[in-house]
Structures are given as structure tokens and as C-alpha cells.
């Protein structure tokens, strides 16, 4: 057991945790997006999707618990790395210039991450920890997106997630050592394509709902 703790406490071990949990969130986002696409098909399609999802019962509980556990690991490890990295350069440079490696996504990981955790909390309060008696999930979504401020918050959060994942997906592959000169450029492009898909896919939902209802 001791070797396991030393492994995960090491720099590469922490990177491993970030990569595995981060990739699982990407998988979650994909599933979540596919499910939410039923919103575009209207009220009944979405309500029946939600019903089917909830009928999975214990499976859902397992997935939720897993995501929560991974979420805690990702956030705590991310914050720990963030502070450790600041401490690694106590005296800052007078002039800072990039050589072209950094991207907006990579340079903002801890900040987009913190915005995401705030948003996820807000999102769960809106749609998860809400009294659902005498209403439908579609009704709850529609009521939320009747408020322009909610639309703005959701769109901005989704764009934030897109930036986070634009670096994260590729970065996770590099961290895991799943790299190949032939495929790495493709993985980078796939990461960006994925983030655009997430951004557009989720981002248009609030706008669509508010326009069509």
C-alpha cells in the first residue's frame, strides 16, 4: 500500500490522477450532451429520456458517486498542483513572453477549472437538488432559461468548459504517455474539435429553449 501512496503523491502520479479523472469527465460530458440533445426534439422526448435515465436506478447512483469522487480528486489535486507550481517560481520574471507552446486553454486551466466547479455547484442546485413534485424536468429547464441571466451564465460556463477541455483532452493523452508522432497532431486537433462540439452543443440549448417556448 505504501508504494501506491508514494506513486500517487509524486509529480507524475498527480498528473496521472488529473488525466484519468479529467478524461472520465470528458466521457461524462459526451454522454450528458447526447442525452441533452433530446431537448431539441421537444418536451416529450426530453422527459422520456430523463425517465429512462432515472429508471436505471442503482447504476445512476454508482455513476454519480464515481463522478463525485473523481471530482474531488480532480479539484483537490488541481489546486495542490496550482499552488505548488506558483511556489516553484518565487521570484517572477520582469518580462514574460511565450515561445508559442502555450495556448489560452493551457494558460488558464486552474482558473477555468475554478469557474467550472462554481458552475457545477450552481447547475446541480438548479436542476438536481430541486423539488420535482408536480412538475416535469422539462418544465424546470424551461423556467430556468426564461431568465436571461441564466442563459448568460450557462453559455459562459459552457464556453469556459470548452477552453478547459481544449487543452485538457490532449494533455491527458500526453500525460498518460499515449503518444505517437503520427497520431499526436490528430489528438490535438480532436481535442479542439471536441471542445468546439461541447461548446456549441451545450451552448445552444439554453438559447434554443428560450426561443422556442
Amino acid at each position: 500500500m505504501n508504494w501506491l501512496i508514494t506513486t500517487f503523491a509524486s509529480s507524475i502520479g498527480k498528473k496521472l490522477m488529473m488525466a484519468v479523472t479529467g478524461l472520465s469527465f470528458c466521457a461524462f460530458l459526451t454522454a450528458h450532451l447526447i442525452g441533452n440533445l433530446t431537448l431539441y426534439a421537444g418536451r416529450d422526448a426530453f422527459n422520456s429520456y430523463a425517465e429512462h435515465l432515472h429508471s436505471l436506478g442503482p447504476l445512476i447512483t454508482v455513476a454519480e458517486t464515481g463522478l463525485l469522487f473523481f471530482g474531488i480528486i480532480h479539484v483537490l489535486t488541481g489546486l495542490f498542483l496550482f499552488f505548488q507550481n506558483i511556489a516553484a517560481r518565487p521570484a517572477r520574471y520582469e518580462v514574460n513572453k511565450n515561445a508559442g507552446g502555450r495556448t489560452i486553454g493551457s494558460a488558464t486551466m486552474p482558473y477555468t477549472g475554478l469557474i467550472l466547479i462554481a458552475f457545477i455547484t450552481f447547475h446541480l442546485i438548479n436542476f438536481h437538488f430541486i423539488d420535482k413534485t408536480g412538475t416535469t424536468i422539462f418544465q424546470i429547464v424551461r423556467d430556468a432559461f426564461a431568465k436571461p441571466s441564466y442563459i448568460a451564465i450557462y453559455v459562459m460556463a459552457v464556453v469556459t468548459a470548452a477552453f478547459h477541455v481544449s487543452h485538457g483532452l490532449w494533455s491527458a493523452f500526453q500525460t498518460l504517455g499515449i503518444n505517437h508522432p503520427k497520431y499526436m497532431p490528430l489528438i490535438r486537433k480532436a481535442g479542439i474539435a471536441f471542445s468546439i462540439l461541447i461548446g456549441i452543443g451545450f451552448g445552444f440549448i439554453p438559447v434554443f429553449i428560450s426561443l422556442t417556448t
Binding site: 509529480s11 507550481n85 516553484a88 515561445a99 507552446g101 493551457s106 486551466m109
Partner: peptide, 20 residues
């Protein structure tokens, strides 16, 4: 890796500035 970790260096976040 253990020695590197103990010397106070930061952690790689795949920024790619080093190779550039």
C-alpha cells in the same frame, strides 16, 4: 523522479514552452 520532486521544481502541465 523522486529526486526531481524533492528539489522544489514545479509540475509539468504540458504547456510545451520547454521544447519551444
Amino acid at each position: 523522479v523522486r529526486t526531481m520532486d524533492g528539489l522544489g521544481f514545479g509540475n509539468c502541465t504540458n504547456e510545451r514552452e520547454c521544447e519551444a
